[in-house]
Design a protein around this nucleic acid. Sequence first.
DNA 1: CTTGTTTAATAAGCATGCTTATAATATATG
DNA 2: CATATATTATAAGCATGCTTATTAAACAAG
Lengths: 158, 158
Amino acid sequence: MKKTAIDQLGFLIHDTGRLLRRHFEKRGQEYGLSSAQWRLLVRVVREQNPTQARLAELMEIEPISVSRLIDRMEQGGWVRRCAHETDRRVNRVVPTDKSLSAYSAIKAVAADVYEEAMAGVDEDMRAALISALTLMVGNLSSDETATTPPNVEQQAAS
Amino acid sequence: MKKTAIDQLGFLIHDTGRLLRRHFEKRGQEYGLSSAQWRLLVRVVREQNPTQARLAELMEIEPISVSRLIDRMEQGGWVRRCAHETDRRVNRVVPTDKSLSAYSAIKAVAADVYEEAMAGVDEDMRAALISALTLMVGNLSSDETATTPPNVEQQAAS
DNA sequence: CTTGTTTAATAAGCATGCTTATAATATATG
DNA sequence: CATATATTATAAGCATGCTTATTAAACAAG
């Protein structure tokens, strides 16, 4: 039945994520950017010099994780911490020239990895995949409180 | 177009995995099992006392990661390392009574988290999701070497 | 102005993954 | 038997996430 497949959903998503990360890092390692660093850089470029707190919010990770990611990225010459104009508590995170010039190349690598991963997955299935994942992120983000909304068929242990 | 959605695939899968893990750990923390420990325990029970090397192979993580996971699980009373009958290099990993009695309860928690995540995702979409992820895992596991032969379906190594 | 609260960033320490290296044991070969 | 190679587990050290606690600055209220 499908039930057995659902049991493996967590494993599947975990594995897919791990494999994507692994491939991206292998392909992107000539640039010296890890996948976490790449995710952060995308936000920095898109948001135009966000603060660390803003990055934590966008990436849904803790501020301390951002802080340490940026430690390493600053060391690697990818971003700089710049003082905020008015608020002396705040750092703006600014991409370096190195980041800006590598950006499109690395973006192409990412797109390439995605296409490699999606070989043999037709358009309909891609659309369904993305819709399903988007729904799931919504379900899991929103109801930090609720437990079991509308039509759940929860299965006990099998 | 769809291209923009594909760009976000990595982010989506990453987020979904992170959120699933977070929910599972919140719900399962009364048992004191993390999600990595849970994944390992499932293998241990299914495989009937596998060796650490076998676990590393099954979970596709490094032997050293297994070793340290088991360090903590042994401390937590979830598994024991038992000497192999003939090969003195080898440890068999054996679930404790505590594991066996908690197993179905935790399995139910996992199933519950999956259902919560999948609320509003209909049967067709679930099937497509699982098929797509399975294909992706295949693509990313098999071709550790190739780069992007157009629409590949090579299943070289397993 | 002083006191208290909130916010931004960091520190300390843990879990889980990784890579690279080592120790102990098994096995294969001269 | 002795030596070379495999395999199993572990060690050391790093990256990235977490929780909890701290520091510095901003802001609000008396």
